[in-house]
Simulated scan of single mutants.
Amino acid sequence: MHPPEIRARARRLYLCGATVAEAARAVGVSYPTVRQWCKVRPEPKQQGTESRCFRCRSDVDNPTDPAQYAYLLGLYLGDGHLVTTARVPVLRVSCADAWPGLIAACEQAMRNVLAGAVQRVRHQGCVVVQSYGKHWPCLLPQHGPGKKHERRIVLADWQRTIVERHPGDILRGLFHSDGCRFANRVVVRGKEYVYPRYMFTNESADIMASASGVSTCSASPGG
């Protein structure tokens, strides 16, 4: 017998948009068992993500946690991918195994921005943090066919407002996905100086330009 919380988690993932196979992998239970849990005597459907999508609500103009949205946007523009061809759209962000704190931060950002259920799918050398939700396309309008660096990436006016108010958070997301920090050592007149240096690389000229603009805004007086 499987613990009730395992069954509840599998059914919750399925009701939030995951397939039976994906729910089975997430909880480590056989496909037939999870299929029976999900298909036989299903629980009432949970309230959809529309109530949590600030873009679809007439009474809300901004995300509940704009800083977390800016951070998640940075992660998405780096190592994220939004699949809209599935039965329910799924947002996926690849995170290196070497940085468990990043994995946890990505998962928490997805929960705070929209999702009720977030999965971790393990691959060699990385963990894909993913969340199903019909309203992810509303919050990430940069999605589209093909690779991000092969199409135009332009922030919507409402996204630009959020980014201008939280430049540090989107930069944090960008650097967590496609950047690095290291100790730069220089010797001046025989004395060694060590200071942190940040580098960010992305194949999209639009994303690189956006990162440069946000960085300038963040470094400006009062920013």
Rank of each mutant, 00 (worst) to 15 (best):
K45Y: 14
R120D: 06
S131R: 01
P89Q: 00
G80A: 08
Y69V: 02
G116Y: 11
A98V: 09
C106P: 06
V60W: 07
P44K: 02
L155G: 04
A96V: 09
A70S: 05
G133I: 03
V163N: 04
E150H: 11
D97I: 02
I153N: 04
T84G: 01
V154W: 13
H149G: 01
N62W: 14
A104H: 10
D65P: 05
A109G: 01
I153H: 06
V88F: 07
V127W: 00
C56K: 07
D157P: 06
V93I: 13
A104S: 11
P145A: 14
K148W: 08
H123W: 12
H135M: 00
A96F: 11
R152F: 04
R151V: 03
T161M: 10
L140H: 01
T85Q: 13
W136K: 07
P66L: 07
R122C: 05
G144N: 01
G116R: 14
D157M: 10
A96N: 14
Q46S: 12
N112A: 15
R55W: 04
E107K: 06
C126D: 09
L102T: 10
V90S: 03
A67N: 06
K45C: 12
L139S: 00
P145Q: 14
D79V: 07
R111Y: 07
V154Q: 13
A70Y: 01
G101L: 03
A67Y: 09
G48C: 05
L114M: 08
R111T: 13
Y71I: 01
G48T: 02
P44V: 06
R52C: 02
T49W: 04
E107A: 14
V83G: 00
S131Q: 00
S58E: 15
R165N: 15
G125S: 13
W158Y: 13
G125Y: 02
L139G: 02
R122P: 12
Y69N: 03
A86N: 07
D65K: 10
M110H: 06
